[in-house]
Design a protein around this nucleic acid. Sequence first.
DNA 1: GCGACAG
DNA 2: ATCTTGTCGC
Length: 255
Amino acid sequence: MHLHHTTPATEDEAIARQLTLRERVSHEDSGPAPGAPATVAGVDVAYDDERGIVAAAAVTLDARTLEVRERATATGPVAFPYRPGLLAYRELPAVLDALGRLATPPDLVVCDGYGTAHPRRFGLAAHLGVLTGLPAIGVAKNPFTFRHRPPGPERGAWSPLVDAEDPQEADGPADAHGTERAFHGEEVGRALRTQPGVKPVYVSTGHRVSLPTACAHVLNLARRYRLPETTRAADQLCRAALKAATAHPGGASQR
DNA sequence: GCGACAG
DNA sequence: ATCTTGTCGC
């Protein structure tokens, strides 16, 4: 699974590419069912801005036991600056490299960040899904520019994540108090409570997975902590890979 | 113009 | 993302 990914020269080009690629996204469930026998990979990246280095990790887990099946890392130069809405161009080159080093492709990929919940409905998880063809979902730690009501306190509770900027339907006469209106936009994801009384995570679809299914996968992967085990494992590994790359420049360096 | 802004 | 010790709590 070797995928080449050229870096856009400008932000305009990056945006234009998102608008083209997003037409290939599928929101239908064609991936593994939550809790079914399958492998799920977590991917994440860590940066050393001083040296302009990025380290990525891909960790495959057994979806039922959550045991680690395989780990892979990749390091390289930072190819794109951080820009809200264009995160994929900064993270994907290294992430795709790490994914490609796995002996066996996963049945589902869990990304750090958003998928459909994005200004152009094409965040990191959707981008990765389209490029790899793999089912993918996004799990973010904060609501970005979106709004939501607080979910109930119990594990599994959720509330719609909506794009308040979206001038959706005009329900009734213009309410003088636009407060309620802020929650009436398009549902782009869900604020999902994975642990009782703990801050929710923000789930959105990426590719080949529906929103309800994406949430079920996240709950299945977050049995003990707020974040899915896939995210925790990948986060830990990419940080270790970054330290190794910083400590032994050239050692196991990769492009 | 100002503020907000996944990682 | 990253800079960073101890500390309060289950």
